[in-house]
Design a protein around this nucleic acid. Structure first.
Lengths: 346, 346
DNA sequence: GATAAGTTGGGTAACGTTATCCATCCTGTC
DNA sequence: GACAGGATGGATAACGTTACCCAACTTATC
């Protein structure tokens, strides 16, 4: 440990001595527990302030709560996650809770498992898991130990709460928007399933299925064209190249995520085609960059801040004792920008 | 706490019983401590695997290490931070360490303070602080308690290590690139200082100062034009509008960060001007999106993964006992793309 | 004025781990 | 064969906090 001379921390005992009371009394004040007079509260609070005492989290974790919420994110490259986190923080910090994040690593279930273990080992009071790829069984196993809210999955479970975007509505908005503009050959870029049948609950599956449904409902079943790559720039690039090579070429591409739409835009430009003159492109997520004047991507806005805020509220409720499962769905909205137009129009 | 029936955790005692040895022996095996025979090691390890034991982090924190590195990020909207985090994770996970992230909130020193306290309270073994805005004194105070590596600040201190990009080299590359292309009226977008004199150490100050130095060295002192807004899209947008309104108009804009460059691009397009026909635009950071075909932003690449990896190594060294301060500087490289060209050229 | 009921404050045993001792046991050495 | 010295394993006291008790006191009730 080296010779670092960490000055000894101020403990609850120091505060108790300084205020001439017992450690129990101090602990009660800290936890807003029953059985503390107003006089006691002010006296102890004064000592706390005077000594600059802060509770030792690890010691707390041995007995009670840690006042920590663990957030599992696949990665931190998607600005949508930042919105979620901000919403969560707004909701939980007034109650003295702190959010800590851990990267779960996206597709690799083993890495994801390690990340979730890391939070459990650190005794967080609750977990917000964004876009998990593991099985529902594993989520339920975790939920038995710790209050859990899952964000961005269409699973149903009696053991944890779900916060999700209504991807069916969102995808329908995009496809109908393109149809209304006059497009018929509308293609879709989705994510390739890495895992088997259980993927049904994942949001990209919903978006892809809705795309096919709406196309079929409008008599465009023959024009369904799907490239299964990934919700990344590279995936969008590869997917768009694949779709553009088809004959006849689609006049519109609906990418299941903005990141993929960015990649698709690059591929379209590279092919010497113009947007929206030759090809309309639409995304999903309404990431910050979509709004920039030179990108102006049509997208679907899901209010990440509200989702994060709700997740926070649900976690606090669960920590307080609620056991019944709750499901919260956000209705998304279409944001039409200049990347989509009627086919043939400039 | 509700009626959740958390099944009791497997503890070191359970492992000891199962392996018919003392808890001390198990602890020694876990920590690779001295005084354990090969036979003992395998026996204990077998029991650990069989019972699926995982060390209880909070309990560890009471006595020894937590095997946790805390990472303070201003926010998670900058993909450059993701590179840093990935590099850090690669470096520390083989040693059994786990990184947890906390948002420090950017400009607000009070929020930053709360975030850093949160990590200290959670007994992390070391802290990587990315782009702190607090005073050097506060950093040193923290460094007295916990091994600290600061990333992205040009401070010097005997108490903590620094990992930084050589912003002087990077900024010089950009300005010289533009001058070589034939530009003379080169403007710069920088960040407005929120805090007083100490800001000298922050990277935007270095980039701005270098811009002025190189301009002056090339006899272009009269053409120096700086807009002090912020390293955000909005800041870039506002800054570019301000610069474009000047007479004579600059022929090139060097934005101190890619995010600002994106905003500047939007403003240029909105003004009906073309890039690079009318205006060349360059950024700094080489964020992922800069490479996309339809953005193609000239930028400066600083290898975030290497920086994160180095930070991880330095932290492990400090945890192991090193006390001498180290300073690690990464030399950046220019990535010229289509957003810059000779003035008047199309 | 005796008793019950409620309020307030404190003593203390955990929680799971580690580090410092200490007690063996084994292996050479003279 | 006595003894030193190293290797190995274990007992045990912390670490800072909380929650379950119980004791003492105050107020209400008959």
């Amino acid at each position: 440990m080296g010779t670092r001379d960490r000055q000894r921390r101020v403990t609850i005992t120091d505060v108790a001595e300084h205020a001439q009371v017992s450690t129990t009394a101090v602990s009660k004040v800290l936890r807003n527990a029953y059985g503390v007079s107003e006089a006691m509260r002010t006296k102890v609070q004064a000592a706390i302030d005077e000594l600059g005492y802060r509770p030792h989290n690890a010691a707390r974790a041995m007995r009670g709560r840690t006042f920590t919420i663990g957030v599992l994110l696949p990665h931190i490259r998607n600005p949508f996650f930042a919105d979620i986190l901000d919403g969560l923080t707004d909701e939980i910090s007034p109650s003295g809770y702190q959010a800590i994040m851990v990267q779960s690593g996206g597709h690799d279930p083993a890495a994801e498992r390690r990340a979730s273990d890391a939070l459990v080992d650190r005794q967080v009071d609750g977990v917000l898991w964004v876009a998990p790829v593991c099985t529902r069984g594993q989520l339920e196993k975790l939920a038995k130990d710790i209050p859990l809210v899952v964000l961005g999955r269409h699973d149903r479970s009696a053991l944890y709460d779900c916060v999700l975007d209504d991807d069916e509505v969102g995808a329908e908005l995009v496809v109908k928007h393109l149809i209304t503009l006059g497009h018929r050959r509308i293609a879709h870029i989705t994510q390739k399933d890495t895992v088997g049948g259980r993927a049904i609950a994942l949001l990209h599956t919903i978006r892809a299925a809705t795309y096919e449904r709406v196309m079929t409902e409008h008599g465009l079943a023959d024009h369904v064209a799907v490239a299964a790559t990934a919700y990344t720039e590279e995936g969008g690039y590869d997917g768009a190249r694949e779709l553009l090579a088809r004959d006849p070429r689609p006049t519109a591409i609906f990418a299941g995520a903005d990141q993929a739409a960015f990649g698709a835009l690059a591929a379209v430009h590279e092919a010497g085609l113009s947007v929206p003159g030759d090809i309309s492109v639409a995304g999903y997520d309404n990431a910050r960059l979509t709004g920039l004047a030179h990108v102006a991507l049509t997208s679907v806005d899901q209010d990440g801040a509200i989702m994060g805020q709700t997740a926070g509220r649900l976690l606090l409720e669960r920590i307080a004792g609620r056991t019944a499962a709750v499901r919260f769905s956000v209705t998304p909205a279409l944001v039409a920008r200049r990347s989509t137009a009627s086919p043939g129009e400039r």
